[in-house]
């Protein structure tokens, strides 16, 4: 599905990523683990086009792919941020329908029907009309997942999905990620939590801390 080879990235002379290669197959889960400061999040930001690699190449389904152009109407990679980044001024439903309406040019009716469908799959059916500040952390995360899913991504990426939640919620995140896997979603999960990674991963990529140049 997604292949990255020899990704390099440095910030102000500090090499953060050195010749990182990874591969994730369709419908599988790749966990990127490593201590904090090792560059896991940077790697994820490169994959999702929020940061540009200094060198390296990407392929999706064998075709060359530039994450920086992860902005065609052909949805490829969805992102669930560590701090969720919901839009506070929009209701849960509007958070989810915004991009399908603006980017995929779906009609409001269609976008809302799809959003409600996704919400009920994530046990959030009754939350459609409230605002993010009224949600718990776990609910916010599921809204963020719903928002990403609404664009029909081929790959869903998570940055530290367990770190902003109560420890007790780890189990439910695992269940959710594995459920999405059973529906065929390809997922990349950045985490520092090794147990969590081992519970969900098909493959684990360990990123080592930075070295001074």
């Amino acid at each position: 599905m997604l292949e990255a080879s020899k990704i390099n990235k440095s910030f102000n002379g500090t090499q953060v990523l050195t010749d990182i290669s990874l591969e994730v197959d369709s419908g599988k889960i790749l966990c990127i683990v490593g201590p904090s400061g090792a560059g896991k999040t940077t790697l994820l930001r490169i994959i999702t086009g929020l940061e540009q690699a200094d060198s390296g190449s990407f392929k999706i389904d064998g075709q060359p792919f530039d994450p920086d152009s992860n902005n065609t109407s052909n949805a490829l990679i969805g992102v669930v941020f560590q701090d969720f980044r919901l839009f506070p001024h929009l209701s849960v439903l509007e958070n989810i329908t915004l991009a399908p309406e603006l980017v995929l040019k779906e009609s409001r009716t269609k976008a809302q029907a799809k959003a409600k469908d996704i919400l009920s799959q994530l046990d959030l059916a009754d939350k459609a009309d409230i605002y993010p500040f009224q949600l718990s952390g776990g609910q916010k995360q599921r809204v963020a997942i719903a928002r990403a899913l609404a664009l029909d991504p081929k790959i869903l990426c998570y940055d530290e999905p367990t770190s902003a939640l109560d420890p007790g919620l780890r189990q439910s995140v695992e269940t959710l990620i594995l459920r999405l896997k059973s529906q065929g979603m390809t997922q990349i999960v950045v985490t520092h939590d090794m147990t969590f990674a081992q519970n969900i991963a098909d493959k684990i990529l360990e990123v080592k801390p930075a070295q001074e140049l």
């Binding site: 990679i77 941020f81 991009a99 664009l151």
Partner: peptide, 11 residues
């Protein structure tokens, strides 16, 4: 983060 969230949603 709001800009980045909008960006990955391809607004």
């Amino acid at each position: 983060g709001q800009f980045e969230a909008a960006r990955v949603l391809r607004l």
